[in-house]
Design a protein around this nucleic acid. Structure first.
Length: 639
RNA sequence: GCCAGCAUAGCUCAGUUGGCCAGAGCAGCUGAUUUGUAAUCAGCGGGUCGGGGGUUCGAAUCCCUCUGCUGGCUCCA
């Protein structure tokens, strides 16, 4: 007998060789039906894998993240089985579960798999699921595994096998399909009741663009049809929050083929929003001792040769601008930091002047790959809320913490509760991607790690995500469809001060090198606003929204009074417009609701006579009549 | 940049296997209506079917190419 400890601390004695499923059955049949996988001594296992030692056991169902992962991974195998049936000789890469389902990378040779083929594959999957085949785990020797895939002619699996140790290799089989896999899997294909294949995409084998491009098929699956229907509905709802759609509907910004791809054009309302965001940050920065500067949109090529940007990005970026002089070239600025370094270098600095905090809403231009352009989130011309702090090494920690505080203030003000703070470090396997000495990098990396630990910020760490001149602390926020974007960033840089030979005179009357912090709490105005639109579904906070109210006269007889109201409100810095179209009040209300104007002021005979307005709140409804003074007070409450 | 798709009026979309002057709703314009909390009524205008090239007696429809867009991959200072 062995002792199985459950999460609640209770211990059950079962026979050695019992599985998690056996334990589930001993608890209840209902539970057993829903068990997908289990965590045994901290490792996720097949529910039916025999346990032979004392163990802690946690059962996973669809309600657990690990349960879903197992379910989707098994669904990927089911899809592979269907693909083998429909496309004999197809070669398989990898097929993992992801946050929202699963995918499998396949190489179908000359055959093209497109979205048109997905329904047939789904149908085959459903047919195979109905066979209710068990997923069967089997240990296999490396030699036998290699022999199997040589026979099958699947070079991708053979390549994967090269990286595996003999003795740790397992195969999983369901029905007529066998795959190299460490598992775990759900007990039976019959559990997969609903399948939807979402799309196909090209994906390079092992994520390297030098390798063969495979076809990646994305799908999602559920234990119940109803859950699939609900999921698809949720996706539809999320699409309504897409900033590209709302940006057009709310007249915030546009793109023009003639101006060029990835070059956003801000329309009056979007620009008003953008200006308000910038003013908010200007005020915060002023409180914190930043000085604003303005630098040109171009700079001599040598500036970027000095900074290292040219060597790193020159080939793949906007090409130099020529002048009538043959030996003269300028670059559109891809970053503001070289200009700001020149500001620092402009005159000598005493340690007493530091930290020097130089801020600029700097518009930069980067030639992003055409396939990468995405609404406002990934563009070729954008404005960073940039600043560079030049400080002594002793001041670094405090300055970093100040910036961290500013960034958190900004995120909080915008109501972004769910963000990830990601420490982006060097890729240790690829040192040639970075400039500067190992000592500089280590100092910068530990500065970030220590500071975040000190304030107890919970972080994730990603290797290889650093900038070429230094490590970063990046704030990642998700868009409506769950894709993660980097917004704010704080970067510690010992390298550019070296390249620009920046110095200050210390208390010892000797020259010292400053440390530089690059930081942008919004990241870029464009991307930040894209996320703001998606998070608010276009219903911006009252202080930020371009138009706070609309006055809706019941008939044009009251237009004069409406103008009086508008003027009265303007004196209280309350902004809005009068909808004086010759339309019914019902129509005006409907249009205003759809434009997501927060407040409607309805004005007819009663209001005009009583010096009042009838207040209606977007999405809520009628709040009744109030005097102008009462409304102003009410408005201040809402702010 | 790569893979797979998409591109018809300002917007959302119809347009049968290539075949008569390319349609609808909304928006717009004109007129009527002077309106009380999510669409007043009537009339009118608007499209080189993304650009270019080709196949064909004939192309929105088939082929090539360019541009833009969508979903991924790679990239992201």
């Amino acid at each position: 007998m062995i002792n199985i400890t459950l999460p609640d601390g209770s211990v059950r004695q079962v026979e050695s060789g019992s599985s998690a499923m056996d334990v589930a059955k001993s608890i209840s049949e209902g539970l057993a039906r829903n068990v997908l996988s289990a965590k045994v001594n901290g490792e996720v296992w097949d529910a039916n894998r025999p346990m032979t030692t004392d163990a802690t056991l946690q059962l996973f169902t669809w309600n657990d993240k690990d349960g879903k992962t197992t379910f989707w991974h098994s669904s990927a195998h089911l899809m592979a089985e269907a693909l083998e049936a429909l496309y004999p000789g197809i070669k398989l890469g990898i097929g993992p579960a992801i946050d929202t389902g699963f995918y499998y990378d396949v190489d179908a040779g000359d055959r093209v798999i497109s979205t048109n083929d997905l329904p047939a594959i789904e149908k085959k999957m459903q047919e195979l699921a109905r066979q209710k085949n068990d997923y069967v785990r089997k240990d296999i020797s490396k030699a036998d595994a290699v022999a199997y895939f040589e026979e099958k002619g699947d070079q991708y699996k053979l390549e994967l096998l090269e990286g595996l140790e003999d003795g740790e290799i397992t195969f999983y089989t369901q029905g007529g399909f066998t795959d190299l896999c460490r598992g775990p899997h759900i007990p039976n294909t019959g559990t997969i009741k609903a399948v939807k294949l979402m799309n196909v995409a090209g994906a390079y084998w092992r994520g390297d663009e030098k390798n063969q491009q495979m076809t990646r098929i994305y799908g999602v699956s559920f234990p119940k049809q109803k859950e699939l229907t609900e999921y698809l509905h949720l996706l539809e709802e999320a699409k309504k929050r897409d900033h590209r759609k709302l940006g057009a509907e709310l007249d915030l910004f546009m793109f023009s083929d003639r101006v060029g791809a990835g070059l956003p054009i801000w329309l009056p309302k979007g620009n008003a929003l953008r200006e308000r965001l910038m003013n908010f940050l200007r005020e915060e920065q002023e409180k914190r001792g930043y000085k604003m500067v303005t630098t040109p949109h171009i700079g001599k090529k040598e500036l970027y040769v000095t900074s290292g940007h040219y060597e790193k990005y020159g080939e793949d970026s906007f090409q130099p601008i020529k002048t009538p002089r043959v030996d003269e070239e300028f670059l559109l600025k891809p970053m503001n930091c070289p200009h700001h370094c020149e500001i620092f270098a402009h005159r000598p600095h005493s340690y007493r002047d530091l930290p020097l905090r130089i801020a600029e809403f700097g518009t930069v231009y980067r030639y992003e790959q055409s396939g990468e352009l995405h609404g406002l989130s990934r563009v070729r011309g954008f404005t960073q809320d940039d600043a560079h702090i030049f400080c002594t090494p002793d001041q670094l920690k405090e300055e970093f913490l100040n910036v961290l505080d500013l960034t958190e203030t900004v995120l909080k003000k915008m109501g972004f509760e769910e963000f990830t703070a990601q420490i982006s470090l060097r890729d240790p396997d690829n040192p040639s991607k970075y400039i500067g000495s190992t000592e500089n990098w280590e100092a910068a990396e530990s500065a970030i790690i220590n500071a975040t630990q000190e304030v107890g910020l919970s972080t994730t760490t990603e290797l290889g995500e650093a900038a070429f001149y230094g490590p970063k602390l990046d704030f990642m926020i998700k868009d409506a469809l769950g894709r993660s974007w980097q917004l704010g960033t704080i970067q510690v840089d010992y390298n550019l001060p070296e390249r620009f030979e920046l110095e200050y005179i210390g208390a010892d009357n000797k020259a010292h090198r400053p440390v530089m912090i690059h930081r942008a709490p919004f990241g870029s105005m464009e991307r930040f606003i894209s996320i703001l639109i998606e998070n608010t579904a276009g219903k911006f906070p009252l202080w930020l929204t371009p138009e706070q109210y609309a006055i809706l006269p019941i008939s044009d007889k009251f237009n004069g009074y409406c103008e009086e109201v508008q003027q009265a409100l303007a004196t209280h810095d309350i902004r809005g417009f009068i909808d004086d179209r010759n339309e019914t009040i019902g129509r005006k209300i409907r249009d205003t609701e759809l434009k997501k104007i927060p407040i409607m002021l309805i004005v007819g005979e009663k209001e005009a006579e009583g010096n009042a307005v009838s207040v209606r709140i977007q999405g809520e409804g009628d709040k009744g009549a109030m005097s102008i003074e009462e409304f102003v007070a009410y408005f201040k409450e809402l702010l």
